[in-house]
Design a protein around this nucleic acid. Structure first.
Length: 111
DNA sequence: ATAATGACTCCCC
DNA sequence: GGGGGAGCCATTA
């Protein structure tokens, strides 16, 4: 692990942990809040590492389209979908309904 | 140090 | 509206 990117991960975790129940956000939004809108891909990578943590609701993080692209990385096939539905969201075919209404805009922690 | 991979996003056809 | 290609960042081999 490099020295600088490590902070990036911490920011990602910190932000994801701040996502309120019943809300979701996108990798790009997180990356942007971190001051690196082009590091959306890296955010996903951080999520992968967040799997070893227990306080990082990665299931609330989806792509900008509101699609559960990373559901495949979860325990089961629909584990992510079930989690979101259990939080009051509506997920159909790995697609969050009214994603724009359930989206959660993170605050810039980079400032 | 170079090359390949990935839970993304944007641009073009 | 749907599909394909390129770009960016960080990690791993």
């Amino acid at each position: 692990m490099s020295k600088l990117p490590e902070d990036f991960y911490q920011k990602v975790y910190q932000l994801v942990k701040q996502i309120p129940t019943g809300k979701v956000t996108s990798y790009g939004a997180i990356a942007k809040a971190l001051g690196s809108p082009q590091s959306a891909r890296t955010v996903g990578y951080a999520m992968n590492a967040s799997h070893k943590l227990n306080n990082v609701p990665a299931h609330r993080v989806v792509n900008r389209n509101g699609v559960l692209t990373g559901k495949h990385h979860f325990s089961g096939t629909h584990a992510m979908q079930q989690l979101l539905e259990a939080e009051g969201l509506v997920v159909i075919d790995d697609q969050i309904q009214d994603f724009d209404k359930h989206i959660w805009q993170p605050k810039n922690i980079d400032t």
